[in-house]
Amino acid sequence: MDTETLRMAPLRRIITTGALGAVLVAGVAEPAHALDVPPRPTEGAVQDQADLLTPDQEAQLNRLIGEKNSENEYIRAAVLTVDDTQGESIEDYSRTVATDWGVGDDGRNNGVLVVADMGERELRIEVADGAREVLSDGDARNIMQDELEPGFKKEDYAGAFTNTITEVYDEANPQAAADREAKSNTLLRVILGLVGAGVLVGLFLAWRHHRQNKRIREQAEGEIEQFQREHPDEEITDGMRQAYYKYRLQNRKAPGLNDKPNRAKDADGIEHEIRYAPTFRSWLPLYVMYPAVYNGSAASSAGSSFGSSSPSSFGGGGGFTGGGSSGSF
C-alpha cells in the first residue's frame, strides 16, 4: 500500500462513520408533532369537548350566535372547549383550529374563536385580521378581563360564554349595544319588583335540574361499567363516555307515540331520525354507525341552533395571524 493510500484511510473511516451515524439518527428521529384538530361542529358553532355546558345551555349559546350572525355582518364567532391543547400554546392551538375550521367568511376574514383549555386553565379570544378592524386586541383584552375570566373563575361557564359572545358582537355593532342598554333600563323597575321571587324560583329550578342531571349521569356511568364488566375486551373511550352522557341528557325518556322524532345529519350530510336507545348497550352500535348523529350534540332539524336563515360562522375564513387576547382562571 503506497503512502497516499495510507494517509487517506483514516479520512475514509471518518466519513463512513459520520454518514452511518446520520442514517441512524434519521431512522430513530420522531416525526414532527401533528395537531389532532377537533372536529368542526356539525350543527351550530359550539364544540364543547370538555363537557362544560348542559345540552340546553349549548343550544342557547348556538341560538345566540345564530341570532348575532343575522344581525351583524362584521363578526362570525365560534366556541371550543378542550381538556388540553396537545402540548401547544393556547395561541398556536387556537390559531390552528380557527384556520382549519374556516371560522369567518371567505375573503372577509371576520372570524372570532373563543377557546377554553381546562387542563392548563387558559382562555383565548382569537381574532382574525378582518375582524380586528372592528374588534381590536385591546377590545378583546377588555372582554377577556371583564367577562370570560370572571365567569370561569366562578365556574359559570354558560354565563361566561354568553356574555363574551354578546360583547364580541356588540363591540362590532355599537347600535345593538345601545339598543340593548335602553331596553334594559326600561325594564329595570319591573325586574327589580320581581327579582325576589325570581331568585327563589331560579334557585329551586337550578337545584332540581342539577339533581336530575346528576341522577342521569350516575345511571349512565353504571350502565357503562356493567357493559365493561360483561365485555372486558371492548374499549370504551372518554369520547364515547361523554357522547353517551350528552345523549342520555337529551333523551331522558322514551318519546310518546305522537312525538315527532328529532333528526340530525351524519358525517356525510345525510339526515337521519334520532332513535331512542334506553341503555348504553343499545346506544353503542348506533353511535358506532353514526357518531355525528348519536353524540348528544346533534340538534333537531326542526329546531336548529342557527335557524335556516342565519348565516353560518364557518365560511372558509382565515387570516388568523395572532390577533386577540389570552387569559387564565
Rank of each mutant, 00 (worst) to 15 (best):
D106L: 11
V46H: 01
Y74G: 14
S94G: 07
D51V: 13
A32T: 05
R40F: 00
I90C: 06
D100L: 00
V97L: 05
N110R: 11
Q86N: 02
A45T: 05
N72F: 08
V82N: 02
N110H: 12
P39S: 13
H33F: 02
N110M: 13
E71N: 12
A77H: 04
A45P: 01
D100T: 11
P41G: 10
L53K: 10
A45M: 08
Q86V: 00
Q86F: 00
P55W: 12
G66F: 03
S89M: 07
E43S: 13
G44L: 05
E71Y: 07
T99D: 11
P55N: 14
G44W: 02
E91S: 12
P41Y: 09
G111K: 06
P41A: 12
P38R: 03
V103T: 08
N109M: 12
Q60S: 15
D100M: 00
G102D: 00
W101I: 00
R108P: 04
Q60M: 15
Q57L: 14
D56Y: 11
Y74W: 14
L52Y: 05
E91W: 07
A32R: 05
G107Y: 10
A32I: 05
E58A: 15
L35P: 01
T81L: 03
L52C: 07
L61V: 11
N62W: 02
G104D: 10
P55G: 14
E88G: 00
A34L: 08
